[in-house]
Simulated scan of single mutants.
Amino acid sequence: MIESAGPRVLQGHGTENDFVVLPDPDGSVWPEGRLDAALVRRLCDRRAGLGGDGVLRVVPSALVPDAAAVLGEALSRCEWFMDHRNADGSHAEMCGNGIRLFLHVLLAEGLLDRAAAEAGVLVGTRGGPRRVGALPEGGYWVDMGPARPLGDGAMVLGGRSVLGVGISMGNPHLVVLLDEPVAEVDLSTVPPVDAAMFPEGVNVEVVNVLPTADGADAHARMRVHERGVGETRSCGTGACAVASAALTAAGRSTGTVVVDVPGGRLSVGFDGRTTVLSGPAVVVAAGHLAPAWLAG
């Protein structure tokens, strides 16, 4: 008989940007010393583990050692903290797809009521506090904060140097607008970028600007190579960076952008002050980690 005494674990995704989710409502199941980089890599391994682009630990902000440093005076207003790790075990600042899944899990686990979710709640992240909420018709939104320009930057793509625009969404992005179809671009390895501009690495997005769709002000198709992960089916912060670049290319600073990713469709709105990302999130499996696997 397979044991079920191991800790609970969920799997879910937002537009196929998938995560292993670890509920830890009292902070005792996955303390920092247990959830180390090696275990994160094992959990995210798609052959020997559960598989995912990262790990999301659902834990109260007050129980995260570095939460006060990243949240400041907002610590007391962020009941929950999205302790996000990349698939390589490194800590991640922020993930727009992950935080929508995070809110979905808070609702599914009974840790937050629906009315509070629809009103919007602050969630702590290593990129700072983020307000996230549930849409009445389904799906979730998150206030991603402003898109901050980092300046132009170069990278090597297909043996040639191409120019992109650096954008910060709490984490760094290099967005490259291309005429060639993004489906033909090789993102199997990390595209070489200006290490002086991005000393800690960068998320790289390749983009086609398309005719407008669904009444939006701009429409883009993107693929992404995420820092610490590799190519993923979607990236929420990347979609926001891409949307900002697409609006700028259209001569606009506000409006709504439809962003198509390999895993589905996202909507990004700019009002001149902040960025709001909307899209789906779903839990696809729940169970327990086998003690024998954990011990291995």
Rank of each mutant, 00 (worst) to 15 (best):
R8K: 10
V9L: 05
V9F: 04
V9C: 09
Q11A: 08
G12V: 07
G12Y: 00
H13R: 11
T15R: 12
N17G: 02
F19H: 14
V21F: 08
L22M: 05
P25H: 07
G27A: 08
G27V: 08
S28L: 11
S28P: 02
W30N: 12
G33R: 11
R34F: 13
R34A: 06
A38K: 14
C44T: 05
C44G: 08
L56K: 05
R57Y: 02
P60F: 03
A62Y: 04
V64Y: 14
D66M: 13
A67N: 12
A68T: 06
V70D: 11
V70F: 14
V70S: 14
E73T: 15
L75H: 13
S76K: 15
E79Y: 11
F81C: 01
M82I: 05
D83C: 05
N86C: 03
G98T: 08
R100G: 11
F102D: 11
L103Y: 10
L103E: 09
H104I: 00
L106F: 06
A108N: 11
R114H: 05
R114E: 15
A115L: 09
A115R: 15
E118N: 04
A119H: 11
G120L: 09
T125S: 11
T125Q: 05
R126E: 00
R126Q: 06
P129Q: 12
R130D: 02
A134Q: 07
A134N: 01
P136K: 02
G138M: 01
G138L: 03
G139P: 01
A147K: 09
D152L: 07
D152K: 12
V156S: 14
G158K: 07
R160P: 08
S161E: 15
V162R: 14
G164D: 04
V165D: 15
G170Q: 13
N171K: 01
V175R: 10
V176S: 12
L177V: 14
L177K: 03
D179E: 15
V182D: 13
A183R: 15
E184T: 14
V185Y: 09
D186K: 13
A196L: 09
N203Y: 01
N203C: 04
N203T: 02
N203L: 00
N203K: 07
E205W: 04
V206F: 04
V206G: 01
V207G: 05
V207H: 14
A213W: 11
A213N: 01
D214Q: 12
A220S: 03
R221Q: 13
R227L: 00
G228W: 04
G228L: 01
V229A: 10
G230A: 07
E231C: 05
G238K: 06
A239M: 00
A241V: 01
V242Q: 08
A243E: 09
S244T: 04
L247N: 10
A250E: 06
G251K: 13
R252Y: 02
S253Y: 00
T254I: 05
G255H: 02
T256L: 07
V258N: 10
V261S: 06
P262H: 08
G264D: 10
R265V: 13
L266S: 00
G269R: 15
R273C: 03
T274Y: 10
P280I: 08
A281K: 12
A286H: 11
A290T: 12
A292F: 07
L294R: 06
A295M: 13
A295S: 14
A295F: 00
